[in-house]
């Protein structure tokens, strides 16, 4: 896959319509909604990129997760980019992200929720079972655009169990605003230092567990061990 090809925004990916035939397994969709604004430049973005590699590795160690966990990457740094449309973990190539621009977080959240809704429609058409979609938001700043409308949508979608949004604030993040964006039952978590690797190891472990859930059996997520400052209830 060619990662310079970030124009999924413009050119619809029609291969979507074929993938469920090859792999009719249940899906666990996860959108990584990543802040790549200028303030992430330097060590944070390097650590984030390392984290993505570990994320991929850890998913690949699990023969079910690699077929079932679907990853999509949306970045917001200056503009919102769909860097990776949904693919199963085995097809996922961790991108190398660069930091620049402002923090259009509201627009990014909106796009993520759109993508999730479209994905769910596709699952329904194909008769593919799914688990609750996750949107994993990581930011070190504050939205530079209108985020209130997106926040309302997050709250509505969470209540309706359309998806679950997890927000992680990196050093410097506006935790207050993040708290208003996240649903009340899933308050944001602060990343300890730049522990992106630990964060992504934890996320992939969690997705592995969720991806093996069967009908009626809900999985309890592992507690975040070493990457979070003051973890709430997932």
């Amino acid at each position: 896959m060619d990662y310079n090809q970030t124009d999924y925004n413009v050119i619809p990916n029609l291969e979507d319509t074929l993938e469920f035939e090859d792999n009719p397994d249940q899906r666990t969709p996860c959108v990584l909604l990543l802040d790549t604004s200028y303030s992430m430049a330097g060590e944070p973005i390097l650590e984030l990129n390392q984290g993505l590699k570990i994320f991929k590795q850890t998913l690949m160690e699990d023969s079910l997760a690699r077929r079932r966990v679907e990853v999509s990457v949306l970045t917001f740094g200056g503009q919102v980019d769909l860097v990776q449309d949904f693919v199963t973990a085995d097809q996922f190539n961790p991108p190398t992200l660069h930091a620049s621009g402002g923090t259009p977080m509201g627009e990014a959240i909106d796009r993520a929720l759109d993508r999730v809704a479209m994905r769910k429609t596709l699952y329904a058409q194909a008769g593919i079972p799914k688990t609750l979609p996750w949107v994993f938001l990581i930011t070190d700043g504050a939205p530079t655009d209108d985020w209130q409308r997106a926040a309302e949508r997050v709250h509505r979608n969470s209540e309706a169990r359309e998806m679950a949004l997890f927000a992680v604030g990196v050093q410097g993040a506006d935790m207050h605003t993040l708290g208003q964006i996240a649903a009340p039952n899933r308050p944001p978590v602060k990343l300890a230092g730049l522990q992106f690797r630990e964060l992504f190891a934890w996320l992939s472990q969690s997705l592995r567990q969720v991806s093996r859930s069967t009908a009626g059996v809900q999985v309890a997520l592992p507690p975040p061990k070493d990457w979070a400052e003051g973890w709430g209830q997932v």
Partner: peptide, 8 residues
Amino acid sequence: NPVLFEGL
């Protein structure tokens, strides 16, 4: 294939 054509 209904999924394909509905998608297209």
